[in-house]
Design a binder for these strands. Structure first.
Lengths: 209, 209
DNA sequence: CGCAATGAATTGAACATTCAGTTAATTAAG
DNA sequence: CTTAATTAACTGAATGTTCAATTCATTGCG
């Protein structure tokens, strides 16, 4: 009889695997309910294996934040806004930023826990600041493009970008309180409308000017 | 010699006292670090006294959410927007909503933890929904007032109110990432400006119309 | 072989909770 | 007014469990 051999993985595979399980445990039971033991049980490995890779739980948490933030960063790099025509582009951009894919890339519940940690944990705080700075830079670049094309009339694009980030995060903040999909979709539409208003967007004229 | 008598308090005094200590412990050490033992130590009482009043930790948490939400509700009831002249009023309202007092009424870090809990905990979720509904109703009433006066041109005041709530929470979400007071104040000003734009606010004409 | 991956066994502290008992305040009866 | 009975506030000890972490042994791959 062939005993089911355990497959040995290297750190490069195992560490992210553990982090993903840790993340899933936080989603299911909250940060306060995510112990090393539970993560190990979920993976059918020994708790000490987790300690082997991360030394301390705090380490594991910091690395988890890195992991999540990288995921989010990837999202930023791969934003697919193709249109060059500014009117098309701004609508496509907003559609992406308020898309389900964007919303679901990370788990909002777990993100809240991590944001809470960022108040007490300098390393985590720094990582979030970096992420949001990246995000702001990306948006500011887009805003400048729209301003150059003369289709919006916002003020300083860098600050406006930050306000925009607030709106996007505020949306993530609230979305889950809208239970039925109708009101959820209406909320989404209204958010887009609000952003366009906020930016002083001038729609394309249908016929003459 | 008079031995320092322990003061006996009744439930009406003791329970909120415990809740406040629980809240402070969450602020200091996170929800994941807020144990009954730590709360008791902070108060110089015995852990079992906490159990006496709340039976379970989960109970205590639900009652904490009630407590916080009541605090926030009080804030709503006591909003001091006195001006009747609509232009003055809208500026005063925004100043209140983006004031330091408003921001500091509850602790954002602890709020994040509770919001995270609301994803898994039906009772907590319901309470948050109620709070935000209250908030939305309050804002919608104000919006209607401004629309009637013809100084803004928003759409459905109820939905616009919800977008506004998102913006306010998004602001709370971000404020703590702005470390120096200069950029923090600039961010605040820009948020107000964004809201006025969003609402289609038409400023008072200085001279003729 | 050598080293990384993994597992077992165990530590001591902290955890929420229970329970039995004590102390103080309140009420009612004498 | 005094005192006994009742109730609520509170304490202390002990419960079994889970926690993160350590130490040391074993296994398998290159």
């Amino acid at each position: 009889m062939n005993k089911p051999l355990k497959i040995r993985k290297n750190a490069e595979l195992r560490k992210p695997e553990i982090l993903r399980s840790f993340y899933q445990t936080i989603i299911d039971e909250g940060l306060e309910g995510a112990s090393i033991g539970k993560v190990a049980r979920r993976m059918n490995i020994h708790p000490s294996l987790i300690m082997h890779y991360f030394s301390t739980k705090e380490n594991m948490m910091t690395e988890l934040v890195d992991y999540i933030i990288n995921e989010y960063g990837d999202l930023l790099k791969n934003v697919s806004v193709h249109h060059d025509e500014p009117h098309e582009r701004i609508h496509q951009l907003l559609d992406v930023l308020w898309s389900d894919e964007w919303y679901r890339k990370t788990d909002v519940s777990a993100d809240f826990s991590m944001l809470s940690v960022s108040f007490r944990h300098e390393k985590v705080n720094r990582r979030f600041r970096h992420l949001y700075a990246q995000f702001g830079k990306f948006l500011a670049k887009e805003l400048r493009r729209f301003m150059d094309a003369g289709i919006i009339s916002a003020g300083d694009p860098d600050i406006t970008a930050e306000v925009l980030v607030s709106l996007i995060e505020g949306y993530r903040h609230f979305k889950h309180f809208y239970v039925d999909s109708d009101s959820s979709e209406r909320f989404r539409q209204e958010m887009k409308r609000a952003v366009l208003n906020m930016l002083g967007y001038r729609p394309k004229q249908a016929g003459a000017g």
